[in-house]
């Protein structure tokens, strides 16, 4: 994939995460801690996975720096989504995003067909967002 498309995807995901955060900030009174723990885990893990895989496809020569950047992204996103609810959801989201961020550049550099894998990851992100949306509506 060309580097323009990858940087466009990174920008698009930052906008999508900001939108989900605004939506959850309005609805946070309706969400209990059990659902909040799941939301912070899924959001931190997805942010770290997308950042690691997309950045290692674009810059394949900086493995260590990209590992540090994606771990920091997962830590920050999981922590911010967890701070909406509780202190324990904060710690859970932070740890889970950090672990997934340390692992994500490895699978990004191993994969054989990058375009198919990128579409699969975006489909996974969309499906998990739909699941979170319906479970918020139902609660």
């Amino acid at each position: 994939m060309s580097s323009f498309i990858i940087s466009f995807l990174v920008y698009m995901e930052a906008c999508i995460f900001a939108g989900i955060f605004m939506y959850l900030f309005r609805k946070k009174k309706l969400i209990g801690f059990q659902l909040g723990m799941n939301i912070s885990q899924v959001m931190g893990g997805m942010a770290a996975l997308l950042t690691g895989v997309l950045l290692i496809q674009q810059f394949p020569f900086h493995f260590t720096l990209i590992t540090i950047i994606s771990a920091g992204t997962g830590l920050a996103v999981g922590g911010v989504f967890g701070l909406l609810f509780d202190y324990q959801t904060f710690i859970t989201g932070l740890t889970n995003g950090m672990i997934v961020g340390l692992m994500a550049p490895m699978i990004g550099s191993v994969v054989e067909v990058p375009v198919l894998f990128l579409w699969f990851i975006h489909g996974l992100f969309f499906v998990s967002f739909l699941a979170i949306y319906f479970s918020i509506q139902r609660s």
């Binding site: 394949p60 020569f61 493995f63 340390l102 692992m103 490895m106 550099s109 191993v110």
Partner: peptide, 15 residues
């Protein structure tokens, strides 16, 4: 897994 890959980067095609 991370330790083995950093010891031997050719496993992950890291140049």
């Amino acid at each position: 897994m991370l330790g083995v890959v950093l010891k031997n980067p050719a496993l992950c095609n890291i140049p």
